[in-house]
């Protein structure tokens, strides 16, 4: 709707002339621009700094004190909270659990969602419907997911009965009550919830790869595995790297599912860094200690993000965070 009618075009020289360095006018222009900029960026910046950055900064401060959340903050503890956390068996174990989830995601979820995306990347009947279905768990809240699976995984519940019906009755477990199993149960539920996201992501990536490239490889006598290995996978690289990034960060922060399903139990068998943090900091009123745990969790994520950004994502992400690749 921008008007380009002839009578307006005559304004052009005037408009250009207006940019000529007439000093006072220019100064007024600068002031106006500054006001505009503050008006535009101000609210977002205030909101972001106030509710994202400041809390993280404040956590660093609290982490240096022993504080139960009430009264004055005066019991300076130095780095004691950090030392306590890093020597606490439960916390160390929770870090391990997070790493197990990270590892399982990379080793199982990634190939699985890639494989399914490859399989589905062709004309199928009911394709749109299928994509819709695959994505459903991702849209359901973690609370809903947790309750659905709590119902399924009850002793002698639907999961066990299905296994029995399939003649695999020997495989039934106390899915959520056995300390050695619970972590893997959580992983399966998380996979159920998040695999659709990966599949959709990879399908979108595959759709962006020109057919001609695969055809050319096939003409040159490449087997379909060779085509995938040497043509498709490299071109899918950026998508895979982003998926890995999101998956690792997500696995390190896992909370809702675990909290609602097991609260980290039984006997800390599914304790995650985030559940430990809420349990210690919020439930037991150890806000100084909890803050230290938060800072550790934050640091782990941050270091991973920086390294990953530096070594893997740099080419893909338009210089976000490390900046200046543009």
């Amino acid at each position: 709707m921008v008007s380009t009618s002839p009578d307006r075009v005559t304004d052009l020289p005037q408009a250009l002339a207006g940019r000529a360095p007439a000093r006072p006018a220019r100064r007024r222009g600068v002031l106006r621009r500054r006001l505009e900029l503050s008006f535009l960026i101000g609210p977002a910046l205030l909101l972001f700094v106030g509710f994202v950055l400041v809390p993280i900064g404040v956590a660093v401060y609290y982490s240096l004190f022993d504080w139960n959340g009430f009264g004055p903050i005066d019991d300076f503890a130095g780095l004691r909270n950090y030392r306590t956390a890093l020597t606490d068996d439960t916390f160390l174990e929770s870090i391990q659990h997070n790493l197990v989830i990270v590892g399982l995601s990379l080793v199982l979820q990634l190939p699985l969602s890639l494989g399914i995306a490859f399989l589905l990347n062709r004309r199928l009947r009911g394709q749109t419907l299928l994509r819709l279905i695959v994505f459903i768990p991702y849209v359901l809240s973690e609370a809903v997911t947790a309750l659905v699976w709590l119902a399924l995984l009850q002793p002698n519940g639907a999961a066990d009965q299905t296994l029995e019906a399939l003649g695999l009755g020997g495989l039934t477990q106390l899915w959520l009550a056995d300390r050695d199993i619970v972590l893997y149960t959580i992983f399966v539920v998380a996979t159920w919830k998040y695999i659709g996201f990966g599949i959709i992501l990879f399908l979108a990536g595959l759709a962006g790869i020109p057919k001609e490239l695969r055809e050319a490889a096939a003409l040159d006598g490449a087997s379909s595995w060779q085509t995938v290995r040497h043509v498709v996978l490299p071109l899918l690289g950026p998508t895979i790297r982003i998926w890995i990034f999101l998956s690792v960060i997500g696995s390190l922060q896992l909370f809702d599912l675990v909290w609602i399903m097991t609260e980290g139990g039984p006997a800390n068998g599914s304790e995650m860094m985030a559940t430990y943090l809420i349990d210690e900091g919020f439930r037991r009123y150890r806000f100084g200690y909890g803050s230290a745990v938060a800072v550790i969790l934050f640091t782990i994520c941050f270091i991973f993000a920086l390294l990953y950004q530096r070594f893997a994502l740099r080419r893909d992400m338009d210089g976000a965070v490390t900046g200046g690749s543009r």
């Binding site: 809390p55 993280i56 404040v58 909370f255 809420i278 934050f298 993000a305 976000a320």
Partner: peptide
């Protein structure tokens, strides 16, 4: 400009989980 942009993108790395405890106190 790029500095501000980077500042916001840093926020991408931290879902709400990390900051909740201090956020609660605030």
């Amino acid at each position: 400009r790029e500095g501000f942009y980077t500042l916001f993108t840093v926020g991408l790395l931290f879902p709400i989980g990390v900051a909740t405890l201090p956020l609660y106190l605030m």
